[in-house]
Each structure stands twice: as structure tokens, then as C-alpha cells.
Design a protein around this nucleic acid. Structure first.
Lengths: 211, 211
DNA sequence: CTATAATTGACCCGTTCGGGTTATTTTCCC
DNA sequence: GGGAAAATAACCCGAACGGGTCAATTATAG
């Protein structure tokens, strides 16, 4: 008696008819997979997947009406544990990171061969986060500190201490310099970063990964 | 006449003699790979790779003397374009993210089968960032906003505006409430986050991904 | 329907900050 | 060894902030 592994059910959100149908055929035609449903746009998908609760959603980004990014956000709001895998032509930094922040757990570019798409879906099911080569590199690079900024070594130290929430006085004590010198450094930092307050400086430092 | 692809030269940093030699044998014994050198600890490795400039460094984390994390940092300081692939038993969040921040472009756990290690090295060479299943998921999850925090919806809005570097007055104008109410919200936010200044609140909000 | 949480608003007061100006010492590159 | 860049330090002043106390209205959950 054969013991069949449970099917991985996949929902597809893709506006291009050809691509959508090809994907559906690919998934339904492969042992171990089933296509739960397909959608042309996000609104339908949000309704649909809430009812169907597939294992994985294959999601395009450039969609008519609501963008895939917002779609991911909405679906994740309702079903935080549902895994959403992005499949798109967009390789732009902004979009990649927005998709991941919205809750995507993987990101494939559209030239990905069918076999790799299937493998990626399996990987998602196993608790992984498959990404195309260049996307993965963008992601790991995003962790690294920026070195291209106009600040001197000492200024970075001051800014780093500032980011720990300290006052001028406390920064001075930490770095063994007078409060007035801290003040001076901060003035220079503000000019260079084009900010006008501690909180703005901290926000910029953390967002731009200066510290 | 055969056209051989150039060999991928790999340096290994690993203190365990058995593992180090196994890896060296694996790499030298595989078509298309060569082991440039092996090191027991970071200091040697830093000197060595600076001279040899291999294509990829396979790096352990738990090393005697300087930790692999610091080793990655030092090597990257000297050779920012050298690709370093971590191969370790450590799956702890802290260590994974420290390694990536230090400059690792990939992260494999030690149970990774030899074939996958070789494939990962090829992927690094192609400009990718191979990661073990669970590591990749940790990484994508790290982009998502935390929902477990003690702040109310409105407080998050206020904090979000604060993170754009605005003053109380400007926050009030943005959210159509009086400056005094902003002040009140901030007081509650400070209590809940246990901070005592705008910059500390911004730092905490961004680091903890509350906004 | 009631009680609790959330959101809104106000005043006071001492501290800190942001921006302006000036100046000396140290470090490091050419 | 000379000059530029960086790091150090000081003073002033008005604006902004942090913390304290008090209070009203609106949602929301039980």
C-alpha cells in the first residue's frame, strides 16, 4: 500500500493569462503539488486564500489595482502563518525589500526555470526562504554597514553613542571628552547628514546603516 | 581541445583537524575546485588570504582566539570584495546576524551535505548568497515588523512620525492633534518602552522593528 | 450596559538641545 | 616640515523637550 505524501496546495496571483495558466499547469501537473486556485488580482486573492488557506501563495508584484506588496501585507494581516513566495520580474532594491518587509518569505525572479520554482515551493514548505541568486545577495548585502558616508571616525563614534539614547553629557563621559566637544561633533554631523535633531540623526544613522 | 573553466580557489578556516582536512579533500578532489590553503585560526587566515586572495573563504565561527565573526570583519576590512561563506554549527540568531553584518555573504550549518557545500561555493562565485533553509527563513523574518509590543495603534503612529525626525509640534500637525496630546502619547510610549528621550525611542523603535 | 482602555487636551518647570561664533591642539598626508 | 583636516573646548540664547499632575470624551470588550 503506497503512502502518498500530502499534496502541497498552491494559490497563484498573476495577472498575465499565459503565465498564470502555465504556472497552474506546471503545479497541477507535478506529483505532490496541487493548484488550489488562481487569481488575476489581489482583492480576489485576499478573499480566496482566506477561505482556502493554501500552503503557499505564488505572488506577482506588478498587478492591476492593488500592488502585490500591499496584497502581501493584507494577506499576512489575516493569515500571518501563510507563506507567500514572490515571483516577479522586478529586481529593484526598493521592491524586493518592501516585499520582504510586507511578509514575503521568498523571492524569485521570473526567469526562474520551472523546476526551480517547484523546488522553491517545496523549500518554503520545509520552512526555508528560497531566493534567486541576485536577490539573496542583495539581502545579505543589506546587513552590511555602509562605508560611503561623509562622517569621520570620531563622528561615527559619537553618532553610535547617540544611537544608544544618551545625552550630550553622557556621550562626553563615554568618550572621555567634554560635553562641548560632543556638541561640536554633533553640529558637524547634523550638517553632513542634513538633519536638525537627535532623533532625526538617530533615524538616519540606523536606516542608512552608518552605525 | 578542451576549454577548462577556471578553478574556484577556496581557503578554509576551521580549527577541528578532521573537519578541516575533510573539507580540503572534498574541495581538492572536486573538478573545478582547488583548496588555496587551510587555517586553524583567524590571525593566520587574515595574513594568508591577503596574500593568496582566494575566490571564496569557508569560515567557521567557533574558533580558538579570535572568533570567526571578528575574523570576517578584519578580512572584509582589508579585502571588501572577497566572498566569505560561513560554515558552522551555530544557528543562534545573534551569531547569524552578526556574521552577516560583519560581511559574510552566505551561511551554512554544519550538517550541510558535501554536495550542497560545493554547490554553495559555486553559487557564491556566481554572485549569490547561499544559506541553509532555516537560516534563510531567519533572514527573511528579520525584515518583518514586530507585532508583539505594548503600544497602541495611535502610539505606533506617533512613534512612526517621531522616527521621521519631527518635533512635537510637527507631529501634532501631521496627525491633526494638539502638541499637548503628542506630548501625552510620548509620555506613555516612553513608559512602555522604558526610554527617556526622543532619540532613545527612535533607536528602540527602529532596532526592534516596531515601525 | 458597564467598566476598562484608548485618545484627546492642558499647565508648569527645570533641563537639554540646536545653532551661532571663536579658538587651540593633534594628526596625518604630501 | 608645512598645511589641511580632524579633534578638542568654550560661551550664549531661544526653542524644544521630559516629567509631573489633572481631566474629558470615545471605544471596546465582557
Amino acid at each position: 500500500m503506497d503512502k502518498k505524501p500530502p499534496l502541497i496546495s498552491v494559490a497563484i496571483v498573476e495577472d498575465d493569462d499565459d503565465i498564470r495558466q502555465s504556472l497552474a499547469v506546471l503545479i497541477d501537473g507535478t506529483e505532490g503539488f496541487m493548484c488550489a486556485n488562481t487569481y488575476r488580482e489581489c482583492w480576489e486573492a485576499i478573499q480566496g486564500v482566506t477561505a482556502e488557506t493554501p500552503d503557499v501563495v505564488l505572488m506577482d508584484i506588478g498587478l492591476p489595482g492593488m500592488s502585490g506588496i500591499e496584497g502581501i501585507r493584507r494577506i499576512k494581516d489575516r493569515l500571518p502563518d501563510l507563506d507567500i513566495l514572490v515571483l516577479t520580474v522586478h529586481e529593484n532594491d526598493e521592491i524586493v525589500f518592501e516585499a520582504l518587509c510586507a511578509g514575503a518569505c521568498g523571492y524569485l525572479v521570473k526567469e526562474t526555470p520551472p523546476a526551480r520554482i517547484l523546488e522553491a515551493i517545496r523549500e518554503v514548505k520545509r520552512g526555508g526562504s528560497p531566493m534567486s541568486t541576485q536577490i539573496a545577495r542583495m539581502v545579505t548585502n543589506s546587513f552590511q554597514r555602509k562605508t560611503m558616508h561623509p562622517l569621520t571616525t570620531r563622528e561615527v563614534e559619537v553618532l553610535d553613542t547617540l544611537c544608544k539614547g544618551k545625552s550630550y553629557k553622557m556621550i562626553g563621559e563615554s568618550l572621555f571628552i567634554s560635553e562641548e566637544t560632543v556638541r561640536r561633533h554633533l553640529k558637524n554631523i547634523y550638517k553632513k547628514l542634513e538633519v536638525h535633531s537627535k532623533s532625526e540623526a538617530v533615524a538616519k544613522a540606523l536606516k542608512e546603516k552608518i552605525v
